[in-house]
């Protein structure tokens, strides 16, 4: 008997982008509001898990062709690189810097190197959680 889950798949296709945009918002709002890399990463994981629920493992792996263990490595490299980059400027390890820039579309924007560290945390959380879920859910 072939089950038909058209409603779930159509809902997942729309809802995935809403959850993903919300996770991006929470990731970027983390400096002045609740949120940050960890919650944003977990929400992105939730969006991908919704795709895994509506479709199957092979389709999602073909749609998002990332090796998620490599994503963990890239995230760790970003965080450690941000921490170690402060040594080049003769300041202690993990010293952050920020400045105000006049970006074309955003106006006066405060850019902080903690955001790069946070994106490393984001990538590590997404990679670790998706690796766990795919390796647990994928066996026959």
């Amino acid at each position: 008997m072939k089950k038909n889950n058209v409603i779930l798949q159509t809902t997942a296709k729309v809802t995935f982008f809403i959850i993903f945009l919300f996770s991006i918002h929470i990731f970027f709002a983390g400096h002045f509001a609740p949120g940050g890399g960890f919650v944003g990463g977990l929400l992105t994981t939730g969006a991908i898990v919704l795709l895994l629920l509506a479709f199957d493992l092979e389709t999602v792996q073909a749609t998002l062709p990332f090796n998620f263990t490599v994503v963990i490595g890239i995230g760790l490299l970003l965080s450690l690189g941000t921490a170690a980059g402060s040594i080049l400027f003769n300041v202690p390890f993990f010293t952050h810097a920020f400045a105000h820039f006049d970006l074309p579309l955003f106006g006066d924007t405060e850019l902080h190197t903690a955001m790069i560290f946070d994106s490393g945390v984001y990538l590590v959380v997404v990679g670790a959680a998706i690796t766990i879920i795919q390796s647990i859910g994928g066996d026959e």
Partner: peptide, 10 residues
């Protein structure tokens, strides 16, 4: 409904 949460191939 199905007994499995994530399918390998539907």
């Amino acid at each position: 409904e199905k007994g499995a949460i994530i399918d390998r191939d539907t």
